[in-house]
Each structure stands twice: as C-alpha cells, then as structure tokens.
Write a protein that binds this DNA or RNA. Sequence first.
DNA 1: CGGGATCCGCACGGATACTG
DNA 2: CAGTATCCGTGCGGATCCCG
Lengths: 113, 113
Amino acid sequence: MKRETTPDTCPAAPALRAIAGRWKTHIIYLLGEEGPVRFNAIQRRLAPVSPKVLTSRLRELAKDDLVWREQEETIPPKVTYGLTDLGREVHEVLKSFDAVGRKFDSVAPEEKS
Amino acid sequence: MKRETTPDTCPAAPALRAIAGRWKTHIIYLLGEEGPVRFNAIQRRLAPVSPKVLTSRLRELAKDDLVWREQEETIPPKVTYGLTDLGREVHEVLKSFDAVGRKFDSVAPEEKS
DNA sequence: CGGGATCCGCACGGATACTG
DNA sequence: CAGTATCCGTGCGGATCCCG
C-alpha cells in the first residue's frame, strides 16, 4: 500500500485533505448554513456539479464522519444529508477562512498576453 | 478558457484552493514556524518532495502572495523563502485547524476484510 | 545550490446515459 | 428522486536527468 509518508510539518494536513477538492467545502457550507438538505437540492445549489461527483464527495465526507446520510426507502426515495458534530466544527473553522479568503479574490489576476 | 463557475456557497473556497495540494500547507507551516528558510532546507524538511514539485508549489504560493522569494545571485546561488503578511494570516488560520485536525487521525480506519 | 526539462501515472472531476 | 455506469480530459504529483 502506498504509504504517503507526508512530513509531520503540518498537523492540519489530514483535515485539509479531507475537505480538499472542488466541492467538499461548498457542501459543508451549504449543510452548515441551511441545515439538512436533500440530494437534489444540493445538486441544484452547487450546480453545475454532476450527480456522480456529488454522490462521490458526499460518500467521502460521510466516511470521514463529517456528514450523515438519512435514507427513506419510499417511492420516490428521499435522502437527506446533514453535518455531524465534527462537520460542524469544520464548518466553523472554515468560516474563519472567510476574512482572509476574500483577499484572494483580488490576487492572481489572469496574466493575459 | 475553462471558467470554473464555482458556486458562491463557500466564500473560503478561493483561499482553500490556494493552499490545496500535498505540500503547500506544509510549506506554509514550515516557513511560519521557523521563519525564512532556504530552498534546500525546505526540501530536506519536506522530504521526499522533488525539487521540481517544490519549486512549482513555491512559485504558486508566491504568485498568490503567500510567500516571498529572495534570490542572491552569488555562486553558489542562495534563495530564501518566507511568509508574507497574508501568508502569516493563513498560517494562523491553519493552526486553528489543528485541534479538529487531530480527530481525523482516528477516523477513516482501513476497511479490512 | 537551485532550479528547468521531460516523461509518466493516477486520482479528481466532468458529460452523458441509464435505473430502482 | 437519487443515484450508477461508462468514458474521457486534465492537472497534480513524482522520477530522472541536465543546466547556470
């Protein structure tokens, strides 16, 4: 098995890897700000994410115990996702990124030739 | 050009993308904890990162104004990297991830059959 | 010493179509 | 409604060698 052998320089690395990627932070934010949300609602809010990718990310977040999944086997089915306690913690920390985050919008402006 | 059209659900997304990847957070941590460091020192501390990758990440961080680069055109050359003010801010926020970060070490335990 | 050049593998992400 | 299945493009990260 490909051990990552990542240096211990940054203790936050595992947590950051767990929320890395194009959609995960948006998912956490959405669930954190608006409480439990159903699959289709998430997909619409995070458009243009594809169902495959969204499912994949939600499963990963669930595996890392950041979100929970509640399924009603009705017809039509109804699946709801929400933040766990750990997920809520992450959401809080994420919010502390907002202030510094805004400063990035003005940086790295396309170098056009 | 492939516009990202990412939803505005998570304001922290740009900042997080700027520090995403396997090495960037480690770089920020290293520079933040130990002040300006020379290239070779960084590479040794973050082993087994390759020089190409390290250079690439450092350049990206510099472009995003998280680190600065100081080059002395001596022989042998001497290049030193350090955190900018913005980089230091990010380092601080990163540290707030440590507490919650530790909880991830115990999660996602190998599914062994 | 601090890179650049080149080649490569893989995981993430995307598009489209189909299903219980 | 909430996914799966399939195919594919791209970019990150890695390995190795070479250069000013």
